[in-house]
């Protein structure tokens, strides 16, 4: 998994690519949480993520919770089809 952070005005756009599983979840977490911790509005682009499992969903939940604590915003702006399917299944659980 790789990531890139793009500045769009006051918003940090994080682009993740590749596969997100337990093995790389910490790397994904570290690409997002410090930005939110610093008070930034963060938008996440997952359009180039070919696979994501429950570990990836966990990172999204942690990011959302932290953004609420920090009173900033965390939004998903684009998702790939495989990610959308996993999100749809996770919504039944959440």
């Amino acid at each position: 998994m790789d990531y890139k952070v793009e500045n769009k005005g006051n918003i940090k756009v994080v682009h993740l690519t590749g596969e997100i599983d337990m093995d790389v979840a910490d790397k994904a977490r570290q690409s997002i949480l410090p930005l939110i911790e610093a008070g930034n509005e963060v938008h996440l682009n997952l359009s180039k993520v070919a696979y994501m499992d429950s570990s990836g969903i966990s990172v999204l939940i942690e990011s959302k919770k932290l953004s609420e604590q920090k009173k900033t915003k965390f939004e998903l702006i684009e998702v790939s089809k495989p990610v959308e399917k996993v999100l749809a299944m996770a919504r039944k659980f959440l």
Binding site: S54, S58, V86, M89
Partner: peptide, 15 residues
């Protein structure tokens, strides 16, 4: 209290 294990088990049972 969502953690990967709990959600993962849910995915397995759904699929």
């Amino acid at each position: 209290n969502v953690k990967p294990g709990g959600l993962g088990t849910f995915f397995i049972q759904e699929i």
